Amino acid sequence: METIQSMFKHLHWANQRILATLQKSEENKKGNQLFSHILHAENVWLTRLNGTDSSHLSIWDEGNLETCVELVDQNNQNYTTFLSHLNNVKLDQIVSYKNSKGTEFQNTMRDILTHVALHGQYHRGQINQLLRMADSEPIDVDYITYRRIRD
């Protein structure tokens, strides 16, 4: 449980750093869209973890940074609350959900939470690559950097 909580603190820290970097960089539509996707996917997965249908929720949009500002804080609050009610036993409970195509899957909460943390990191790497290609400075969002700052 401690590792999952640390991963989500890192996720929020990394999201804040990417957001700040995108806000001060020249407009990067693809980078903004990828960041928006991270945040919308976080919301979709939390909806599924809560046992609610997520089929009406979009995971891709135009990448409006104003919306991203709201989602960064909203997702952090929602995951913090969700994680505060979990324990190791609950982490191993099976969650049934349908993907955006209506296909049903089952995974443990632990696997879903791990996926959410890793999914965002994958796309933040893509955003950093786009920033570098646009002659902007990428931002370090590595987990070990986060731990060095926090410890």
Rank of each mutant, 00 (worst) to 15 (best):
Q74S: 15
N99E: 08
E27L: 06
H37F: 06
S58E: 15
S100Q: 14
E137Q: 05
D61V: 07
R17C: 11
S6Y: 14
R124V: 03
Q5S: 06
R48D: 04
G120I: 00
V116T: 03
R17M: 13
G63L: 07
V44M: 05
N50G: 15
R17E: 15
N64A: 06
F35I: 02
R110W: 13
K30Q: 12
E62Q: 11
G31A: 06
S84A: 10
N76I: 09
H12Q: 15
S136V: 00
Q126L: 06
Y97W: 08
T108G: 02
L65W: 14
L86Q: 14
V69F: 13
T108F: 00
D111F: 03
H37S: 01
E27Q: 13
G63D: 02
Q23L: 06
T3F: 13
K24W: 13
G51L: 07
T145H: 05
N107L: 01
N64S: 07
E27W: 02
K98M: 01
V89R: 10
L91R: 08
K29L: 13
D73G: 14
N32I: 01
T81P: 11
L19T: 00
I127F: 00
G125F: 00
L131D: 02
Y143S: 01
M7C: 12
S25F: 01
I112H: 05
F82N: 01
L57M: 10
N28E: 09
G63W: 10
D135E: 07
S54G: 08
L113P: 10
G120L: 02
W13C: 03
D111V: 06
F105I: 04
Q77V: 08
Q106G: 08
G120Q: 10
F8T: 01
D111G: 03
H12N: 15
Q23H: 10
N50Y: 12
G125K: 02
H37Q: 09
K29F: 00
R124G: 12
F105E: 01
W60M: 11
N32W: 04
K29A: 08
E70C: 10
Q106R: 08
E62G: 11
C68Q: 13
T67R: 12
V44W: 07
I18V: 11
D73P: 00
E27D: 11
K90G: 04
Q16N: 09
T47W: 11
A41P: 05
V141G: 06
H37L: 11
V69D: 14
Q106H: 13
S55E: 07
S58Y: 06
R17H: 10
L11K: 09
